[in-house]
Write a protein that binds this DNA or RNA. Sequence first.
DNA 1: CTAAGGTATGAAAATAATTATTAATTGAGA
DNA 2: TCTCAATTAATAATTATTTTCATACCTTAG
Lengths: 146, 146
Amino acid sequence: MLETMDILKDRLKEKGSKLTPQRRATLNIILQNKGEHLNTEEIYELVRKDCPEIGLATVYRTLQLLEEMDIVSRINLDDGCSRYEIKTGDEDHQHHHLICQGCNKIIEVKIDLLDHLEQEIEKEYDFDIKDHKVKFFGLCSDCNKK
Amino acid sequence: MLETMDILKDRLKEKGSKLTPQRRATLNIILQNKGEHLNTEEIYELVRKDCPEIGLATVYRTLQLLEEMDIVSRINLDDGCSRYEIKTGDEDHQHHHLICQGCNKIIEVKIDLLDHLEQEIEKEYDFDIKDHKVKFFGLCSDCNKK
DNA sequence: CTAAGGTATGAAAATAATTATTAATTGAGA
DNA sequence: TCTCAATTAATAATTATTTTCATACCTTAG
């Protein structure tokens, strides 16, 4: 099984770019925090522990790069900043997010029943769907009890 | 049938707030541009025609207010700014957006098959869903031909 | 070995959307 | 009419993000 880091290295090479220590450190933080949905600032703080000389601009640039390389996805939870999570290669098992309006917790939803809906839209609107983003807002079970 | 403007007036009064000329002008622009998805700057420019002395900050505040009052909804199309559209009272007929990656056109989708999905999620995750946002990215029929 | 030319970087400045502050104005109710 | 909270315009401040720029780092050609 190919490690994510090797995949990144290959994709960078294809593009004439290099896997630098800064890029390696940034990807490592994201890998080590699978399940979290860290924003840029949080990633920056964590990366600095391994790589204290890194600049914030480099983190921004690296995250952009990782998104282009299809290694992470950017999540927008309407909280004023971008968050990132590692992409699973498993295309059949996309997930979406439940955002609790009580405690801001983020829960990942593994169900994906959108295929059917997509087909219907593609037919009816003659629109070639490449990607979708779905968010659900509401109250988690903890907040519901209160 | 109650006019949207009257609804706004009532809801503002309940809260001890007033329907000012600036607020009236802002809501009017949004009503007159049903089907568009104007951003704050665009709304500001249009409102200024009726109400030249209005400040941009007031437009921001008014849009926030209109969202709180459940009169408009804020749409985030990942283009770096908030856009707004009037809310239809018709809760059974929500709509979502197709965003063309070729020409940035926005198409409204009338189909709403998410109820089923929501029920499933509510059961499985014990999460009380209040709202959802769905966006589809891809290519519209025009862009597909090219 | 050394120069050339590209990529990558940190620091700082620039930008864009939005929010806070403040002092003046407005308008509804006593 | 008078009073007082709500509202406003103008401006400053903030926040997230991007760009600029001079420098550092490689790799390859000479």
